[in-house]
Structure formats: structure tokens, C-alpha cells
Design a protein around this nucleic acid. Structure first.
Lengths: 232, 232
DNA sequence: TCCTAACAGAGAGCACTGCTCTCGATCACC
DNA sequence: GGTGATCGAGAGCAGTGCTCTCTGTTAGGA
């Protein structure tokens, strides 16, 4: 793709670093991610890696962005197979895609949605854009459902007027005419969905786990649709 | 409490180690927890700490147990101030106590409910008992509410019969006569509650955050009661 | 074509980590 | 009083992130 062979070699090395980093992330977890180990697997001395990656934190950021991208792609692929007016189906498809991806890549999922890695703060300017893909996909479903008159959340008294400060992107996407309780219901569903998924992936259901996590998740999806007010 | 002065000194040193460890946990996070730094703050050389704590993982386990205990105490204190038959109030009190404690101790909260710390697996035999205090408190509320005829979750087709394998303690506590959809609703509420709290504490609402997180949480509580089927 | 400057990797080194070992000093108990 | 367990200090090993210097290579301009 790029001009000089040096450029191509650099791009390939860069991709190798991310690939090896993801492998180590999957096997050892986020905080055990070691630039030296990546260098060893790359067949190179540790200081050479610093020609490509400024620091361990920057490698983490690369992996965060990579993870968001992959998750976003998985969600988009899942949405392609559901009719545009099947809003319950679309929401469920997003949820199932996130869960499946998280179960397949638990370490990356933990990096994105688990507790923050100590001493590491994801730089907002690089991660927010790909990081909002999932929630934007959800918001799009809810927004379209509302426009189609297929979303009527059970009202909960919305008191605070400044409740939805921030969320500029989401607010813009969902449309200014959507009432606040719909937005509140959406935020609840968003957090609750990731709560269900994280609970399962992080093993909070206990050492024995639940008998049939897939079936339980499907039940959760039904309650989730009800909570957000989606009409089938 | 203890016999020889040596025993008392040991107990005090042990408590100091946990206290200093919690301080470092709060300031630096879980994976940055360093036995050497704890030793420095304790005014002792690093190898001396190994007389008290077998490894860094064991210190983490101590902090996990400590955190579960403190959270459980906070929940119990909150429950003391709500009438026994105010089931919605009791569930909300538990939820607010967890949220308040998590906001006050985000690092410990992350240690308990965030992604797993790399390379560290909490030993089940020591952590499961204090770790179930919160969910058992929730289950008690739901169980009593069901017995009082004040819990009627919107049904979601419960298909899989082996869905609730595991959960021996919870099953025993909630009673065998509780139908499966109530248990499923409880599991949903449990995971969704911690999803809402984690979402806020881990900053997933975005860099700008939400305008009034406290008010939003109260709205979430209303939806949570509705989802679990609690009748006010 | 040659020269220069950017680049890539190697290696040493610093400060830190978890953890183990040995060696005196102290304490509890017989 | 003697004795064995305990405690702390210190050295040491292997690993980490990261910086520095040095050498070889490559790309692009004169």
C-alpha cells in the first residue's frame, strides 16, 4: 500500500506488534502485558519495540482501539442480518454480538469494559470515536423505533433537567424531539445490558456459574426490551 | 484478645499491612499494588513483609475479603434504616449503599467487581462467603417480598430447566417454592444493578459523564424495581 | 552517483518489581 | 538458663519499563 519498502516493513512490524500484543492480552491479561515479552515474540530486542510504540500505555491504547473496532465490526455484521424494522430483533442482535465477542475475547472485553488498568488512562481523543460505535448502534435502534411509534418506555419521573448534560453525540444522534424518559430508559438498558454480559464474563455468577448462561441471557434480553419499552 | 505481646504485635502489623495496602489500592490501583511499597510505608524491608503475607496475591485476597466485609457492613447499616416491609425501599437502600461505597472506594470496587486482575484468581474458599453478602441481602428482600405477595415479575418464557444449576446458596435462601421466572428476574436485577453502578464508577458514560448521575441512578432504581416485579 | 540525514536494531544500564535465601537478634516456652 | 521458633535485615535472582549510546542500513536530495 505504501511507498518505500521501509514503510511497508514498518507497517508490517506495527501490525505484528498489535497482533502479538493481542495474543499476550488473551493469555495473560491486560496488566501482565509486557513490551519485553512482545519484543521476544517478535524476535527483537526490547528497545527496538520503542521505535514503534512510545510506551506500554500506547500499546494498550492500540489494543483498546483494535478491540473497539473489532467489536463494532461484529455488531455491524450482526445487524446486517436483521430486518430494519425488527427493533427488538436488532437490539437483541447487538446484545448477542457483544456477548459472543466478549466470551470469545474476555481479556480484551475486560480491557474495554472492566475496571480501569492501574496507572493507565485511555486517551479520549483516540478511543472515544470507535468506543461509541456500540452505543450509537443501540441509540439508532431506539431512535428509529421511537420514530416508528414502537417505543414507549414505562415512565419514571424525570426530575432533574440537567440530567442529560454531556452525551452530546448521543443526544444529537437520538434527536432532540425524544423525551427525556426515553433517553433515561435507553441509558438504563445500555448499562444493564453490559452489566448482564460483564457479570457472566467476569464470573460474578459464582464459581459454579449458572446452569445455562445462554438461556438466561435470552431471558435477560426479554426483560431488557421490556425495560426500554420496545414494542414487538 | 491475644496472649503474648508477640502475638499482639503480629496482629497489629498484619492490620497495618492491610491498611497500607488499601491506601495504595486507592491511590494506585490493584495491579500497581506493590509489596515493596507497602514494606517501605511500613518502615520495614521488603522481605520482612513475607513473614506476614505469603505473596502479593495473598495480600490481594486479604484486600478482597476486607472490601467485601466493608461493603457488606455498609449494606447492612443501610438496611437497618428501612422498614422490613418496605421492599422497594430496602432494595433501593441496598443499591444506594453499594453505589455510595463504590464511589468512595472505586479501586476496591474495581477489585471486587471489575475485570479480574491479571494473573490473580481469588481463592474461592476465602472470598465466596463474604462475597455473597450483598446478593444474599437482595435475595432476602425478594424472597420476603414474594412471600408477602408483593413480587410479581413480568413473565419471560422460562424454557431451560437446568437454567439455575449452581446457585446452591441462593437457591436455598430464596426458597424452593419460588418460581423460576422470579429467580430469573432477580438475576437480571442483580446484574443490571451492578451494571448501572459499574458504568458510572468506571466512567463508561463518557468523558463528559452524565449531568446528574445521582438523579439518573434514582431513575434506574425505579426501572429496576419494575423489572424485578416489586410492587410498592 | 554520492552524501547526508533519518531510521532500525543491539546492547548496556537504571530503577523498580516479586520472591528466596542466609544470617544475626530477639522472644516465648520448657 | 537453655532452646527452638520467630522476626527483621541484607544480598541476590529474574523479570519489568524505559533511556541512552552505538552501529549498520536505507531513502532522498545535490
Amino acid at each position: 500500500m505504501a511507498g518505500t519498502p521501509r514503510d511497508r516493513a514498518r507497517a508490517r512490524t506495527m501490525a505484528d506488534i498489535v497482533r502479538i500484543g493481542r495474543q499476550h492480552l488473551a493469555t495473560d491479561g491486560a496488566a501482565a502485558l509486557s513490551l519485553r515479552a512482545v519484543a521476544r515474540d517478535l524476535g527483537v530486542v526490547s528497545s527496538a519495540v520503542y521505535r514503534y510504540v512510545k510506551s506500554r500505555d500506547e500499546l494498550l491504547t492500540l489494543l483498546v482501539v483494535d478491540g473497539y473496532d473489532e467489536l463494532g465490526d461484529a455488531v455491524d455484521r450482526a445487524l446486517d442480518e436483521v430486518a430494519a424494522d425488527d427493533f427488538v430483533g436488532r437490539q437483541s442482535a447487538i446484545a448477542r454480538a457483544v456477548r459472543a465477542w466478549g466470551l470469545a475475547e474476555p481479556a480484551t472485553y475486560a480491557l474495554l469494559f472492566g475496571g480501569p488498568v492501574p496507572g493507565y488512562r485511555a486517551p479520549a481523543e483516540q478511543t472515544t470515536v470507535p468506543g461509541t460505535r456500540v452505543v450509537l448502534a443501540l441509540v439508532r435502534v431506539w431512535s428509529e423505533a421511537y420514530a416508528a411509534g414502537r417505543l414507549a418506555p414505562p415512565p419514571a419521573e424525570v426530575a432533574s433537567p440537567g440530567l442529560l448534560a454531556g452525551f452530546a453525540a448521543v443526544r444529537e444522534e437520538i434527536g432532540a424531539d425524544v423525551p427525556d424518559d426515553v433517553v433515561a430508559a435507553a441509558l438504563f438498558a445500555w448499562a444493564a445490558l453490559f452489566g448482564c454480559i460483564s457479570w457472566e464474563i467476569f464470573g460474578q455468577y459464582g464459581p459454579d456459574g449458572v446452569g445455562d448462561p445462554e438461556a438466561l441471557f435470552e431471558l435477560h434480553l426479554v426483560r431488557l426490551s421490556a425495560a426500554v419499552g420496545l414494542i414487538d
